[in-house]
């Protein structure tokens, strides 16, 4: 079976889709020949598709997204890259007021097939302006959100995102780019709203996203040794969100730990927790536990960042708190 990295999987998705549909264009800062993107996802694409379709932009995040949305409502299918997830905040009007609302506000007259890619996450000591995980900010009507954790998911979800006629926020994780995994040569897509069960288990459900999926799998393997069987679920898309898979799992295990890299308050974990409380509280044998970052900006120093980030030990501790 062929193994490639998450970065290569993303690149393949972009390339295959660009070959399939020539209305697809890429735009972003330094995504072209000089740099190929800060994380090298677009390596070779400017060379293959030319500067018209792979466009280096000025440092103008708000206009990168605005232009992408404007192009999307007039027949192009843009995939915009924002160099770091933290910098999405510079384009919030275009994302939340424009991309997300245009179709609704104009009574369904228009489609907005735009994808916004951005890398999230801490763990590489680049401090508060380049490390935050902001996914919960985008849980708003009119936006879809994909958060792949593996090369296979990254490729399949990005292809779906590009084919979707709605705005899709596509969040990658810096520490996932170099991870290798099985990705078939054949063409495939992954539907939005379908969680992936990364490991089956009976005693507790762990829901995790992005890099935390990997930490959770390692934690679950450790827990196995202690005789605790954990099921690890990766929702893969936060909007739409696959309630069924989660609720089925919680009904089976009766226990839920939610793991996210973002700060705890107002996070995706809070939303997931509310869903379970509303729809399956009777299935719970213990309180829900959230493993998340403390409510602080991301600190720089390694000792601080390590304290800040959720890890295997914190996940194991949370599980042991609720599994007898």
């Amino acid at each position: 079976m062929r193994e490639i990295t998450y970065r290569e999987a993303l690149r393949e998705a972009l390339r295959e889709e660009m070959l399939r549909d020539e209305t697809i264009i890429l735009l972003g800062e330094d995504i072209g020949r000089h740099w190929h993107g800060a994380f090298k996802v677009t390596q070779g694409l400017a060379e293959e598709f030319g500067n018209d379709r792979v466009r280096d932009t000025p440092i103008s995040e708000n206009t990168i997204i605005g232009a992408a949305v404007g192009a999307a409502i007039t027949g192009s299918r843009p995939v915009a890259e924002i160099m770091f997830g933290d910098l999405l905040t510079l384009a919030m009007d275009q994302i939340l007021n424009q991309a997300a609302k245009l179709r609704y506000m104009f009574g369904g007259q228009v489609k907005v097939p735009v994808v916004v890619r951005a890398p999230f996450g801490a763990g590489v000591n680049v401090a508060a302006h380049h490390s935050q995980s902001l996914e919960s900010l985008f849980l708003k009507p009119g936006l879809k959100i994909a958060v792949p954790s593996t090369p296979y998911d990254a490729k399949g979800l990005l292809k779906t995102a590009i084919r979707d006629d709605n705005p899709v926020m596509f969040f990658e994780h810096k520490l996932c780019y170099a991870l290798k995994g099985h990705v078939p040569e054949e063409n495939y897509t992954i539907p939005f709203g379908e969680a992936s069960i990364k490991k089956e288990g009976e005693d507790v459900t762990i829901v995790a996203t992005m890099y935390m999926v990997h930490k959770s799998i390692t934690a679950a393997e450790e827990l196995d040794k202690d005789g605790i069987s954990a099921e690890v679920i990766d929702p893969r898309t936060l909007a739409p969100f696959d309630k069924e898979t989660l609720l089925e799992s919680v009904e089976k295990t009766g226990r839920l730990v939610i793991v996210e890299e973002a700060t705890k308050t107002g996070g995706v974990g809070a939303e997931i927790s509310a869903v379970v409380c509303e729809e399956a509280i009777w299935a719970l044998d213990a309180p829900i536990r959230r493993v998340a970052a403390p409510d602080t900006p991301v600190p720089f120093s390694p000792t601080l960042e390590e304290f800040y980030l959720p890890n295997e030990k914190k996940i194991i501790d949370a599980v042991k708190e609720i599994v007898p």
Binding site: V126, A127, A128, H129, H130, F300, S301, L304
Partner: peptide
């Protein structure tokens, strides 16, 4: 810890 930002900021800050 003895740095200007007590290690919170690093080179960029």
């Amino acid at each position: 810890k003895t740095g200007y930002c007590q290690g919170k900021g690093g080179s960029m800050h």
